[in-house]
Simulated scan of single mutants.
Amino acid sequence: MSELADRLAALEARVAALESAGATAESDPPPSTGGAVGYSGDVHLAGDVSWSISYSPDGVLGLPPERSVEVLAALGHPVRFAIVRALLRGPMSATALQDTVDASSAGRLYHHLKALTGARIVDQHARGDYRLAPSTVVPALVLMLASADIAGEVR
């Protein structure tokens, strides 16, 4: 019986070793995916803007989501999307924006502008004048293009 007890003990030791190795592997971070993702642009709308950024996929997945979600939520309303499209052509007054995007009232327009300025998409350039910061132009266009691509609008 001693031989059987020895074999059972050895088997239990091997199972324990395998289980602990599996637990360590599960707690280790996933291997790096490698590669790069990015975007760039050289835009001549209301002014000349060049922008380029490249990130590793792991770096993108490691970015904190809170501000990104705020930006996406701000752009997720049709009136706000229209405001950004209008401002890509150049700075506009609140009055011109209200006429351009068919905002129902000045109060509603300012509500949407507050969301866009809070998300750092739109800047209030001067009293009543709004614009996109130059560093926002290419990323805003890329977001518009990427969303249209996901929607199947671009081919």
Score class of each variant (00 low, 15 high):
13 A>Q: 05
17 A>E: 09
17 A>Q: 07
18 L>R: 06
18 L>A: 13
25 A>S: 10
25 A>Y: 04
25 A>V: 12
27 S>R: 15
28 D>N: 12
30 P>R: 14
32 S>D: 08
34 G>E: 09
35 G>D: 05
36 A>G: 04
36 A>S: 10
37 V>S: 02
38 G>I: 07
38 G>H: 02
39 Y>S: 02
39 Y>M: 02
39 Y>P: 01
39 Y>I: 02
41 G>Y: 03
45 L>N: 10
45 L>S: 13
46 A>D: 13
50 S>R: 13
51 W>P: 00
51 W>N: 02
53 I>F: 03
56 S>R: 13
58 D>V: 04
59 G>R: 11
61 L>H: 13
61 L>T: 14
63 L>H: 09
64 P>M: 08
66 E>A: 14
66 E>F: 11
68 S>E: 11
69 V>T: 14
70 E>K: 12
72 L>H: 07
76 G>M: 06
77 H>S: 10
81 F>E: 12
82 A>D: 14
83 I>H: 02
83 I>V: 15
84 V>H: 02
85 R>Q: 15
86 A>T: 14
86 A>L: 05
90 G>V: 08
90 G>K: 05
90 G>Y: 02
91 P>Y: 06
91 P>G: 09
91 P>S: 11
92 M>K: 11
93 S>G: 15
94 A>K: 01
95 T>K: 08
95 T>Y: 09
96 A>C: 07
96 A>S: 15
97 L>C: 04
106 A>D: 04
107 G>D: 08
108 R>M: 13
108 R>T: 14
109 L>G: 02
110 Y>H: 15
112 H>T: 07
113 L>N: 01
115 A>V: 11
115 A>T: 10
116 L>W: 07
116 L>V: 09
116 L>F: 01
118 G>V: 02
119 A>H: 09
120 R>V: 04
121 I>H: 01
123 D>C: 11
125 H>F: 05
126 A>W: 05
126 A>L: 09
128 G>K: 11
128 G>F: 08
129 D>F: 15
129 D>N: 14
130 Y>A: 09
131 R>P: 08
131 R>H: 12
132 L>T: 06
132 L>G: 03
132 L>Q: 06
133 A>P: 04
134 P>E: 10
136 T>Q: 11
138 V>T: 11
138 V>Y: 04
142 V>P: 00
142 V>G: 00
142 V>A: 02
145 L>H: 11
149 D>S: 13
150 I>W: 06
151 A>R: 12
151 A>L: 13
151 A>K: 10
